[in-house]
């Protein structure tokens, strides 16, 4: 079974690499199989790990007759979730706005205090902390801390929209762009590592596992 699996995997791998030459039936076959299998896998995981524990189990409790009155409240979100099925009837599609509004409201409400804390307060504090211990820092670290403040202020200036970027603002935003570009460059450099890693893993599979079954 394992050898068969490796051969199938190798075949599919090569099907997808054929896309590098150009679009072709092998690639299209693999592409569609990929869609189907991925969705199938998604359905199975979603049902076993999402639908059953969260939606089915409360219903099961009620069916079994051991439910307390509180358990019936658990049916409300299930009923709201079922409104997604309104999608099947064009006249009632608007009903999906109910569950949608709840999901979006919860998301927005949870975001405000937590994003303020994690992304604004913590980050501003992080920018200032080196300055509260200047005496203990070496020259390199002081330069780093200064660079950081300049970078943060200039980058943020670039994202000022209600002011024309001229004069001092224009100058700062230009420096901001320079910082942004170095940042994007480093991201690019790191991404190359990530992408190539994926290729190495596949080549490793083809050479070690697949060719290993032949030689």
């Amino acid at each position: 079974m394992e050898t068969l699996g490796i051969w199938i995997a190798a075949f599919l791998t090569l099907c997808i690499y054929s896309f590098l030459y150009r679009d072709n039936p092998f690639y299209r076959f693999a592409e569609h199989l990929f869609v189907g299998v991925a969705v199938g896998y998604g359905i199975v995981v979603q049902i076993h790990q999402g639908f059953i524990p969260f939606a089915w189990r409360p219903v099961e409790t009620i069916i079994s007759g051991e439910a307390s009155p509180m358990d019936f409240i658990k049916l409300i979100p299930i009923a709201i979730g079922m409104l997604f099925f309104a999608r099947l009837s064009p006249r009632h599609t608007w009903l999906i706005r109910y569950p949608l509004a709840i999901l979006i409201g919860i998301g927005a409400g949870a975001a405000i205090p937590n994003v303020l804390q994690a992304d604004i307060f913590a980050q501003v504090r992080g920018t200032l902390t080196p300055f509260s211990q200047l005496g203990t820092l070496g020259a390199g670290e002081i330069i780093g801390a200064a660079l950081m403040v300049i970078g943060v202020i200039c980058t943020l200036t670039y994202f000022f929209f209600s002011v024309e970027h001229r004069g001092a603002v224009g100058g700062l935003s230009k420096i901001g762009i320079a910082f942004l570009m170095i940042g994007f460059g480093s991201a690019f450099g790191n991404t190359v590592m990530g992408r190539v890693a994926l290729l190495i893993q596949r080549v490793d599979f083809l050479i070690e596992d697949w060719l290993g079954t032949i030689f």
């Binding site: 940042g183 991201a187 790191n190 991404t191 190359v192 590592m193 990530g194 992408r195 890693a197």
Partner: peptide, 8 residues
Amino acid sequence: VTGVIVSQ
């Protein structure tokens, strides 16, 4: 993390 998100 994967290389892509290291920088951030």
